[in-house]
Structure formats: structure tokens, C-alpha cells
């Protein structure tokens, strides 16, 4: 049929338009992802004997990885970092800001812009600015503030490194959480609140019984996305602490980087990378499924 032939020709044309996107993604993302699985089964290294003649070592790297306390530590650090900043910190503060901005507030756009500004800061700038807030013992800005308030100060990045790194990442993501949750809040019909007010519901009841349940899908989606994107945070942590002191802030991406580019053990680093890839992919699949994407 002529129509079929036309349709086929059209699809071929469209595929050709997609090729410039398909090729770089295949060569620079898909292939490296598969290649890292292979690499993780070799003893490839940047220096030494293994660099000249990499050998196939099977699951050796994984056995070593799973008995490496530093690897488990990095998983634990990543878990605290993600839960603390993406799930709790950004979400709670972002939600509070979104709720506050729902009221008639003079200068709400100024507040909104201020809260969004950290979002615009590149990771390295964010790390650098927070060095001023936290590093240098009694010289740090936070210490000066604490002293002025008559409170005890500390060498923040040495004494509470993971908490501080988590707080800085929280700082960076409050804005996105606020924007998303504001969109979710404005989707809740006002009639529902009015009806509840007629029935004599207090604000707390309205929040627990109306706002939260109706927002649940938005919140779930937000948490999935922010979890996945927080797992891949690198520059912020690297600029602030480079994983230290003593691995206390070595999130998985910094761990992989240190193994591969500081210790030069490419094969071993790749095994860590594969674990990170599998975890992210699993979360990504959950995300895609829950989106019920219309394609």
C-alpha cells in the first residue's frame, strides 16, 4: 500500500533525526556503563604491573569490596547523607517554606529568590562558601555566631563532618523542594479546605488529614528524584572535605573517585561503580514505573 510505504519512509526519516542523539549516548554512556562491568572483573590499574597487563580476576574485586570496611563505611555515609539531606532536610525545610509562602506574605518573591539562590550556585562555589562558614575552628563564621550568642563553638568539619556536609547539601536543595511542593500545594483545591473549616477542623488536622494525603504522590516523586540525584553528588563533598577526615564523609561517588584516581585501582574502583550503578538503576526503575510515563 502506498500509505504504508509513506509511513515507513517517514519513520526512517525520524530515526535519522534521532541518530545524532543516539550515537553519543550509546558511545559515551551506555557503552561505558557496560564496560565498567567488564572492568570490575579485571585488575586494571593506572600504575604498576597491572597497568601493563591487566588480568581477568572474575568476582575477586567484589569479594574484596564486600570485605572492605571502607566500602561499607562509604555506603553508610551515603545513606546518612541521602536520608539526612534529600529525604529529611530539604524536604522538611522546603515544605515549611512552601507552607509559609502560601499565606499572604509581603515580599514573598524576595523570600522565594533568596531560598532558591543556593540552587544556582555551582557545587565548587557552594563548597568554597561553606568553608568560610565551617572551617578554621574559632575563625569560622558559624563559630563567631555561636560565640556572639554565648554558645560553645567547635571545629565543625572535624568534629561533626558528616552532619555538616549533610547540612550543606540540605542548604543547596531547599529551593527545589520548595518550588515542587508549592506546585503540589496549589494543586490541592481550596474548596476542600473551606469545607473542612466549616466542619470546624483546626489547621493541624487540615494539614494531617487533607494536605499530606493529597500531596502524597508529589512527595513520593520528589523523594525518589532527590534521592537519585543526591547519590551522585560529588563536587560539593569533594570541595568541602575530599571525603575526610578519615573517610567520615566519603560518600560512594567520592569513594569511587578516590579508589580510581587517587589509588589508581581502576578495576577495583569499577566494582564500586557497578554497585552504585545498580542501586541508582533500581531507584530509577522505581521512578519510571511510578511516573506512569505517557510515551
Amino acid at each position: 500500500m502506498a500509505f504504508d510505504a509513506f509511513q515507513k519512509r517517514k519513520e526512517r526519516q525520524l530515526l535519522r533525526l534521532l541518530l545524532p542523539a543516539l550515537i553519543p549516548l550509546a558511545v559515551l554512556v551506555i557503552y561505558p556503563a557496560l564496560y565498567s562491568v567488564y572492568l570490575s572483573m579485571t585488575n586494571e590499574a593506572l600504575t604498576g604491573l597491572a597497568a601493563a597487563k591487566p588480568r581477568f580476576v572474575g568476582v575477586g574485586n567484589y569479594l574484596r569490596l564486600f570485605s572492605d570496611a571502607r566500602f561499607w563505611n562509604s555506603l553508610f555515609v551515603t545513606f546518612v547523607f541521602v536520608v539526612g539531606s534529600a529525604i529529611i532536610g530539604q524536604f522538611v525545610i522546603g515544605f515549611i517554606a512552601a507552607l509559609a509562602l502560601k499565606r499572604k506574605i509581603v515580599g514573598s518573591s524576595v523570600f522565594g529568590a533568596a531560598i532558591l539562590l543556593p540552587n544556582a550556585a555551582p557545587e565548587v562555589v557552594a563548597g568554597f562558601m561553606w568553608i568560610s562558614m565551617l572551617a578554621g575552628g574559632d575563625h569560622a563564621t558559624l563559630s563567631k555566631i555561636m560565640i556572639a550568642l554565648g554558645l560553645p563553638w567547635a571545629d565543625w568539619l572535624q568534629t561533626f563532618p558528616l552532619f555538616m556536609v549533610t547540612m550543606v547539601n540540605t542548604w543547596r536543595g531547599i529551593g527545589t523542594a520548595m518550588i515542587l511542593l508549592t506546585a503540589g500545594l496549589s494543586a490541592v483545591p481550596t474548596e476542600v479546605y473551606e469545607a473542612a473549616r466549616m466542619d470546624g477542623a483546626n489547621p493541624r488536622q487540615m494539614f494531617m488529614r487533607i494536605t499530606l494525603p493529597l500531596m502524597a504522590p508529589t512527595i513520593f516523586l520528589y523523594m525518589l528524584i532527590s534521592t537519585v540525584s543526591t547519590i551522585s553528588v560529588f563536587g560539593l563533598v569533594y570541595a568541602l572535605t575530599r571525603g575526610g577526615p578519615g573517610g567520615k564523609t566519603e560518600v560512594i561517588s567520592v569513594y569511587i573517585y578516590n579508589q580510581s584516581f587517587t589509588n589508581f585501582q581502576l578495576g577495583y574502583g569499577a566494582a564500586g561503580a557497578v554497585v552504585a550503578l545498580v542501586v541508582s538503576l533500581a531507584l530509577g526503575i522505581a521512578y519510571v514505573r511510578s511516573l506512569k510515563v505517557e510515551v
Partner: peptide
């Protein structure tokens, strides 16, 4: 492409 967005770039760095 949705799944590619979730891959951490540090994990792809060495093969890349």
C-alpha cells in the same frame, strides 16, 4: 533516557 539521567557520573568516569 530517563534511566540514563539517574546514573552517577563518577561511576562512568573510568571507562569513559
Amino acid at each position: 533516557i530517563l534511566l540514563i539521567r539517574v546514573l552517577p557520573s563518577t561511576a562512568l568516569l573510568v571507562p569513559l
